[in-house]
């Protein structure tokens, strides 16, 4: 997993509530056995016409947002299925940070596992950042994870909350499995005390 420390980038505004994971990556693109290559299918139904041509109105099709690395979105972003293909598609496109008033739980969790930082902020703060994002390449946002602030183009800083453990993992690019395996002795001890009636799937 790539580290996340600070990021200064163009932010794309996607002012839509309840962007579900079927919108982020429709089910027909899930038939892959790889994690990469999904960026071209990100937001496929919003981004392309039936004949495969681009819809010029869609935000990521506009020249100024083609290299956006931050997404500013509406409420309840990432609701729906547990597909990790959603963060994989965002990441493959180049998005490293999503800012929204709220996120669905599983998506939120999946982001951290892939080096993407989801930032929930109050509606009023998101509205300001949405306006900044609307300015395109003239207005980059800076995300400073260490200090937990979003820096607006006018220099104003907006603080955000992040779970300390997840912050530590993101800053250092740490893999959860390696960390958990340090608890193997405790896991074995737990297993030794399971009730005798616990059935096995064999």
């Amino acid at each position: 997993m790539d580290k996340f420390t600070t990021l200064t980038a163009v932010a794309a505004p996607l002012n839509v509530a309840n962007v579900d994971t079927d919108k982020i990556i429709p089910a027909r693109f899930l038939k892959t056995i790889k994690r990469t290559g999904l960026g071209k299918s990100l937001f496929a139904d919003m981004r392309y016409n039936a004949d495969g041509s681009e819809k010029p109105d869609f935000v990521l099709n506009q020249a100024k947002y083609r290299h956006a690395q931050i997404l500013v979105a509406g409420d309840n972003f990432g609701c729906g299925s547990s597909r990790e293909h959603a963060p994989w598609a965002l990441l493959d496109f180049g998005i490293r940070c999503v800012i929204a008033p709220s996120f669905a739980d599983i998506f939120f969790n999946n982001c951290f596992k892939n080096g993407i930082l989801p930032i929930p902020l109050p509606e009023a703060e998101v509205a300001k950042l949405m306006d900044d994002a609307g300015l395109g390449t003239n207005a980059r946002l800076t995300i400073d994870l260490e200090r937990q602030v979003v820096v607006r183009p006018n220099g104003e800083e907006i603080g955000f909350e992040v779970d300390p453990f997840r912050k530590h993992c993101l800053l250092n690019g740490l893999d959860d499995i390696g960390l958990t395996l340090q608890h193997t002795a405790a896991i074995s001890a737990y297993e030794a005390h399971q009730p005798a009636w616990t059935p096995k799937i064999i």
Partner: peptide, 8 residues
């Protein structure tokens, strides 16, 4: 439900 990283 969990994501694929958690499946692993």
């Amino acid at each position: 439900g969990i994501g694929t990283s958690e499946v692993e």
